[in-house]
Design a protein around this nucleic acid. Structure first.
Lengths: 178, 178
DNA sequence: TATTGTTATACTCTATAACTATA
DNA sequence: TATAGTTATAGAGTATAACAATA
């Protein structure tokens, strides 16, 4: 019990490196607010945008490979792709060599829609990062991308905790303590 | 219609500045996985951690001010604080001058728990940012914090879109186009 | 038996609004 | 009337598992 009746010293600075999560959450939330607003005509907004981006810019063989590339679940892809296909932005093509697989290909309309969306997203991101001086924005973007790629490629199929074990030794992180 | 039968040129690089959202989402997701794992003994995990951090390190007069500081809803605070109080990490103190208000104060146990949690979070964050060279980690952290603070203080009470209007002129963002 | 894609279900967050007690 | 805090409800997003077709 024994709470300080009136914090004598609120130690008015957070320790370095203990609120990254809150900061990232804040930036990402604002990113979503602005970007979803900008992408209302694109099925599933930013989700559809990410998917369409990979379909256009990269060469991913199958639908499940696409899911792995974006680190999202296969079952999510199904209905997002349904709607992107209904909007004639992409097509599901059958692979004659493996009749289970579907290759996702963008239509010309889809490529135009993506180029347009990218312009709007870039604008929105400039607003979101407006609090950063110009040269810090690109550095932030680069760092985020680099960190994300490292995380993504390091992840052995969305399994968490393995990096923790590697880095800290022992089984997982100690629980129950205080 | 007219989908490329086989992408001749997958334009194998994404345009600069169009996948910040995905990258941040990736980093934040991994942050959560590791940090929630590290904070299992803290009520509501990272959520409780953020709240406890502000309660200990800053001097926020009321519960609603605390909500505003963290940009979360008052109704969320209620049950998180319930559980933090049940764990004897914080106390709700009545303000004699306004009997509606409650001032949230950390107990000694709460301050110890926070210090402990901060150590573990710092460790987890090092793992999450492991893909970044050392000097880029701090830069990334700083940039994230700076951007988040700018967003937060700029937000006139969680109203979005105002910054967009300010920055791009006109009413909101243009919709319906392509 | 394992894998691709689909479907259905359950669970977690978040947002919203209604309510009380004070002001 | 407006505000601080609480409670209850509904929606979106995500994760999970079961399923059909194919390998």
């Amino acid at each position: 019990m024994a709470a300080e009746p009136n914090q004598a010293e609120p130690s008015n600075t957070h320790q370095r490196g203990t609120n990254l999560g809150w900061s990232l959450g804040m930036v990402l939330r604002r990113w979503h607010e602005h970007v979803e607003e900008s992408l209302q005509d694109l099925p599933h907004g930013s989700r559809g945008y990410h998917i369409l981006g990979v379909v256009v810019h990269e060469d991913v063989p199958t639908q499940s490979a696409l899911a792995a590339r974006l680190a999202i679940d296969r079952s999510v892809l199904t209905y997002v792709i349904d709607d992107l296909e209904n909007a004639a932005l992409i097509e599901r093509q059958l692979d004659p060599r493996d009749r289970r697989a579907r290759r996702i290909v963008a239509t010309a309309k889809g490529r135009r829609a993506l180029a347009d969306a990218e312009r709007r997203v870039a604008q929105a991101e400039e607003v979101v990062l407006g609090g950063l001086p110009d040269e810090q924005r690109d550095a932030f973007r680069d760092a985020a991308e680099r960190a994300a790629d490292a995380i993504h490629t390091a992840a052995p199929e969305t399994d968490p905790c393995i990096a923790v074990e590697d880095a800290l030794g022992q089984e997982g992180v100690r629980r129950r303590r205080q």
